[in-house]
Design a binder for these strands. Structure first.
Length: 270
DNA sequence: ACAGTAACCTGTTTGC
DNA sequence: TGCAAACAGGTTACTG
């Protein structure tokens, strides 16, 4: 499940292969992603040069000298750099073709997206109203504390709300709350400033560590070269129902919160 | 404004 | 053994 670390890992992986290169063509085998891929994608992108690859939240922005390709990996997407003419297999929906390589989007569940943006991507509806980047300067415990005032929602749902903070999905929300010692059901508005300072620090720490490990591979995620990420081995609570807490030994609990599986240590988190 | 939930989708796991 | 139901989850859209 690509969350921020997986998307950033992908960004870093594809960047050296693509920046400065001219797109020779595009092949769309199945346009039915979250939103339809533009029917004239090949005509639009042909001849454009990639000038940089950025990430905003979980979106990848392939900036060209005449517009931007926005890619989201959804839940099951990955991008690979392959030799030109590599035969496509099932769920290989799109190729961007370059002279010496091919960028291929593979996405079994088709929750991902590939869109063309004319002009400034910042003003695109999908990127408007997004909260701060957790690894950027502006993200602090004081910011979270201020946004949480009066909110009755569970802290875990609050953390996963992209308008509050981007990039934190189910896995890293669970892990951040464990590290901060906060119970996922706690009402957001009831947590004090000190709690939010711990939480902000935990979020940054978890994400940075996961990026170092190349992200978390549970089932789908692979990097641009086909290797998995290794952060799954470092998970403290996610998917560990019934196993003993690596800090105190008590069994990890699982509950549902906002339609999502939620894991915590009843001893370490309150 | 906020909170909760259904929907999108398919591969895998679980239950009968 | 086989088939159906449940589950996984990022994000949007809708409801109250």
């Amino acid at each position: 499940m690509p969350e921020l670390p997986e998307v950033e890992t992908t960004r870093r992986g594809i960047e050296p292969h693509l920046v400065g290169r001219v797109i020779e063509g595009a092949i769309v085998r199945d346009a039915r992603l979250r939103w339809p891929i533009p029917g004239d994608l090949a005509e639009i992108v042909r001849g454009k040069r990639i000038v940089g690859i950025e990430r905003r939240a979980k979106y990848l922005l392939l900036r060209t000298d005449g517009g931007t390709i926005l890619i989201h990996l959804g839940m099951s997407g990955n991008l690979r750099i392959l030799p030109p003419q590599t035969p496509a297999s099932k769920h290989d929906h799109v190729d961007l073709c370059f002279t010496d390589c091919c960028l291929r989007l593979h996405d079994p569940r088709r929750f991902g997206a590939l869109l063309w943006i004319e002009g400034d991507p910042q003003t695109h509806p999908l990127l408007q109203g997004l909260g701060p980047e957790p690894l950027a300067e502006g993200f602090t415990g004081d910011y979270l504390y201020q946004r949480a005032q009066g909110r009755r929602t569970a802290i875990k749902s609050f953390l996963m709300d992209g308008r509050i903070l981007v990039g934190v999905g189910n896995i890293y929300a669970n892990e951040s709350l464990f590290l901060a010692g906060i119970h996922p059901s706690r009402v957001a508005g009831s947590i004090d400033r000190e709690g939010y300072r711990r939480l902000a620090k935990s979020v940054r720490q978890i994400l940075a560590h996961a990026i170092e490990q190349g992200g978390t591979t549970l089932r789908d995620f692979i990097r641009e070269d086909g290797r998995p990420g290794y952060f799954a081995q470092r998970l403290n609570v996610y998917g560990r129902t019934g196993a003993s807490c690596q800090r105190c030994g008590v069994a990890i609990h699982e509950i549902r919160l906002g339609q999502r599986s939620t894991f915590f240590c009843p001893q370490c988190q309150s």
